[in-house]
Write a protein that binds this DNA or RNA. Structure first.
Lengths: 85, 85
DNA sequence: TTAATATTTAGATAACTATCTAAATAAAAA
DNA sequence: TTTTTATTTAGATAGTTATCTAAATATTAA
């Protein structure tokens, strides 16, 4: 749970999730939306992956990232339901 | 939006929200659930207040804190809905 | 009015993290 | 094979933050 909220606490990482909502993308494609170095993006993708908010799949020299929306929904729903009286 | 996720990214702050779900409590009452100094708790309460996740009301020498669950639900729902294709 | 209680504010410090550059790895193209 | 492209890893640095102690503020009790 902590890993997930830590992952969501960075604006760039939330933006990555938004970008991936339409379709899977390689790290290089995602990078076009940002003004940071590839290594910084790689770090963010790693945080998201460890939090299970994205998955990745290698295809040739590209690595494609996908949003794990179902997991995110489950987590947020559970978190909120636990806050009900 | 950023303030909210930053507020939620700390385990002690999420615990405060859990504690407040049953009933409003003064800072001193909340403090009993933690092994940190009052000044540290005060900092966390301030972060939560600025994120609008809690509200506070002074009563005599006590300050009572309340969970703003409706706001949190709206925010999380909106965030998740924006991640749908 | 003085003392005690409740909470916050100020200032310091240690730990954490987002970013960078440079180097490493891996696959594809020449 | 050598070079180029895609991505990650390693190591450094600057900025942020969670915590602490000490002091300030405000209210109630003696």
């Amino acid at each position: 749970m902590n890993e997930i909220f830590l992952a969501l606490s960075d604006p760039n990482r939330r933006k990555i999730l938004q970008i991936l909502k339409k379709r899977d993308m390689s790290a290089g494609e995602i990078l076009k939306y940002f003004d940071i170095r590839g290594s910084s993006l790689s770090h963010h993708l790693d945080v998201l992956k460890k939090a299970e908010l994205v998955t990745s799949q290698k295809k040739g020299k590209y690595i494609f990232y996908s949003l794990n929306a179902s997991f995110l929904e489950r987590v947020l729903t559970k978190f909120f339901n636990n806050l009900k009286k």
